[in-house]
Structure formats: structure tokens, C-alpha cells
Design a binder for these strands. Structure first.
Lengths: 235, 235
DNA sequence: CAGTGGTCTAGACCACGGC
DNA sequence: CCGTGGTCTAGACCACTGG
């Protein structure tokens, strides 16, 4: 593990452990530099990481402050699935509806940039949060990247398996969503009524080398799904 | 303007101007360094910025590549309002329903971290996209930060005024949303039916010094609203 | 004007990809 | 093995905040 990652982690732990609140001041840069015995740039890099994660903000001429404006019960879109699995705080379980190897449809071919010959795993799950129906999930994984899946893996956290088991390095994702009315089939699965509100969410996940390996389509239950998102300015 | 910002902008223009596509390779780091006559770290910083913005991705041992998986007609949540105003591509107009100075409600006090005495501007607008009703927006601006607003400013892009006119430096925002059914009042404004799907979106915008200055509540029309979001891994 | 964070440099060394 | 991006250092200088 790299120095700046270790330092970032340490500072994050420090914030959590000391129950620091929004706006609380952290030690100044020079002090951190002395504490960790690294160069200024390394500390800067660590703080930059924490800033991107929405954990702190830095004010020139003033100091480094804690950013903590989350609301309880909201799912963080950034750490959804592929990234920092912040869903641990939620009791998330799954019922596997389908698991098979297949050839991709046009839609899947487009989103994963593959040909009709390349096989994919198809996984359809019903996901529960605190025992309530949260969403229907249909995922397609490139078989060349994810060579094996079974009922057990798929009934737990797939992304955890991809990262811990297969050591896949996930780089970035493209996400699209809109609101609509549930079809009869969708409503049945979510124990709602036809025409009730639903959020339709699509993701394409890429490895660090840019290769797309997962295309997922989700339909969220309007009664259970609430999200939050921290955005930085990036001048 | 800083060196690394200027370089990042230049590279972005280069990508757009040469119509580079997803996966196209950019010149290698050393070449860019020579071209711009700066140190390696400065180029790295510029590329990091572009990476965060979702414009490129870098692969160690391989190169720098263009990332361009947007879908047309989707609103980018990152560059919504406060940030890179990418809404220019959409024909966005507003009808002002209300504009007044008032004392904050409990809800506004909490979200802006202010007391009951501190006055705020209240703006209610109906926003149109390509002439269609996109959303109802209710915004509260701290009067101490935004001392003046009038009908004309408010009928155009408020954030543009805040940045260009007032020279406010926006640092980050916290965003929350969920799905629900429209009330009668909401449905009337959006020309939909009571009980139709809607997306309820709340934002709190902060200056670079961490001070919250805008709390906004939006209700999106399910027929017009579709969003995208690029997420990076941030190990 | 002292304190604090931000930019930039030059250069050493490391880690990964692909031939 | 070589080319490529990533980390890290030490230090100079700059820009903003707040008393």
C-alpha cells in the first residue's frame, strides 16, 4: 500500500474515531508532514484523495476541515457497488432469479463493446434492503473477464468477489438513469402496482485499463430508494 | 489561470477539435511535457484533472486514452448548475413563480446552518427544457452571500450570475434524491397527473471556504428528466 | 504580516504493459 | 527489456485568511 493511501486511511480513521463533526479543524499540513515523516507533496496527495472522497475540504490560508453532511438511510451513489462498499451499513440481501451464460443481445453488445460471439454471464436478482424489496437487477458480465460465477457467489456481493476473489481492478463507471412507471412484471417483483414510480438505472463498469466488463440494469422501488451524492467543483 | 488548468483546457479542446473517440490514444506524458515545457508533475496534475472530469483515463505502462461514453440528451449531474455549466447544450428556460426575501423555515435553517434571524432569498421557478416542463425549483440563498437578486437575474441562469457577477467561488455540494408520487399542486405545475412519478432532489451548495449558501429543492418531471454520472474509483 | 494551503520544479526510483 | 505512467522527495515561491 502506498504512503499517501495509508496516510489518507489513517486520517479518515482519526476523524471517525474522534467523532469529528462538519467544520472541525484538522492539524495543519506542516504538522501532518512531521507526524508522518513524508514530504509535503505526499501529504497533499493524501488530503486531495480525502477531498475527492468528500471527507474533508481544504481552505487556503485557513486550514483543513471535516466534511460530513451525510444523511442516514441514503445510499451513496459513489460507493455503490464497484467502489468503496458503503452498503455494509445497510442489510442488503439478494434472491437470485436467474444465472446463466448466454450470447449478448444488441443492447449488451453496444454497452460492453463486444461482438455477438463473446459470451456473457447473465444474472438477474431481486435485492432487499432491511428485508424490503429494493430493486430488480439484471447484470451482464464479460465471461473473458469474469470466467466463473455460481449461485453462492451471486447470492452475496458480486463486486466483493470480483475485487477480493478475482483481484479485478475497477477503474470507472458510466451511469445513466431516469424515472418512469413500472410495468406489470416489474411491479409484481417489487410488490408494487403497475404504473407506480420507479427509477431505471444503467451502469457500465470498466477496469483500470478501460475495458468494459459489466453492464447492469436496475429498477428501484420508489418507496425504499434514496440516494446521496457529494460533488466537488474541479475548476 | 494556472499552468495545469491551461494545459488541461488545451488538451480538452484538442480532443473535441480532433473529434477523438472513446479509447483513442493521446500523446505520451513525456511528449506533452516537452510540448508545454513544464515539469512532469504539472502535466500529471493536468491529466489528473481531466481524469476526475471523466474526460480521459490513464493506464500505467500503456498510455493516456479518451473517455467519451456520454449519451445524448442526458443531463450530467456533475456539471449541473454550480459546476461546469454543461446545460448550454440544452435549451433551458425559466418561468419565475416567486421571488422574495424571507426568514428561513426550520428546514432551511438546518440545511444552511443559520439562525432564524438571518434572511434568505426565496426563489421559486418552473424550468423548461426544449420548451417542455422539466422541473419545479425552490431555492433559498443566504442574503449575506447573495445580497441582491431581481426578476431578470432569476429568470436566467442564477449560478452564472453568482460566478460571473458576484465572483462567488463554489467549492462543493451535497445532493440527495428519491422517487415519489406527485402531489396535486406539483402535478398541475408540471402538466402531469396527481400520483405520477417524480424525482425529488435536494442540494446544498457550499463556497470554497465551506460555507453553505444555497439550499434547493427540485421536483423533476419523469418524462423529461434523464441523468448521467461518471464515477471514478479513487482507491 | 505571520500562518496556511497551493503550485511548480528537477530528478530519482518504482510498477505495470506489451513486445 | 523498454516504454509508460505513478510515487516520492526537497525546496522555492505564490496566494489567500485572519488577527
Amino acid at each position: 500500500m502506498l504512503k499517501y493511501q495509508r496516510i489518507a486511511e489513517d486520517i479518515e480513521h482519526y476523524i471517525v474515531h474522534n467523532r469529528l463533526k462538519q467544520g472541525d479543524k484538522l492539524p495543519v499540513l506542516e504538522e501532518l508532514r512531521r507526524k508522518y515523516e513524508v514530504s509535503k507533496s505526499t501529504i497533499t496527495k493524501a488530503l486531495e484523495l480525502l477531498e475527492m472522497k468528500g471527507i474533508i475540504y481544504q481552505v487556503r490560508g485557513s486550514g483543513i476541515f471535516v466534511r460530513r453532511h451525510k444523511r442516514k438511510g441514503y445510499i451513496n451513489l459513489d460507493e455503490n457497488q464497484g467502489f468503496r462498499s458503503g452498503l455494509d451499513e445497510f442489510q442488503l440481501t439478494s434472491e437470485v432469479l436467474k444465472l446463466e451464460v448466454m450470447n449478448p443481445s444488441e443492447e449488451v453488445m453496444t454497452n460492453l463493446s463486444i461482438s455477438a460471439e463473446e459470451e456473457v454471464y447473465y444474472v438477474k436478482r431481486l435485492r432487499f434492503i432491511h428485508g424490503q424489496r429494493l430493486c430488480i437487477e439484471e447484470s451482464y458480465y464479460k465471461k473473458s473477464v469474469v470466467p466463473f460465477l455460481n449461485e453462492q457467489i451471486v447470492s452475496e456481493s458480486i463486486f466483493n468477489y470480483l475485487k477480493e476473489g478475482l483481484k479485478l481492478e475497477i477503474g470507472f463507471s458510466d451511469n445513466f438513469f431516469h424515472i418512469g412507471k413500472l410495468t406489470k412484471t416489474e411491479a409484481n417483483l417489487l410488490a408494487l402496482r403497475t404504473g407506480d414510480p420507479g427509477m431505471y438505472y444503467e451502469s457500465v463498469y470498466h477496469l483500470t485499463n478501460g475495458e468494459a466488463f459489466d453492464y447492469s440494469k436496475l429498477v428501484y422501488n420508489f418507496q425504499e430508494a434514496q440516494f446521496y451524492l457529494q460533488i466537488n467543483s474541479l475548476s
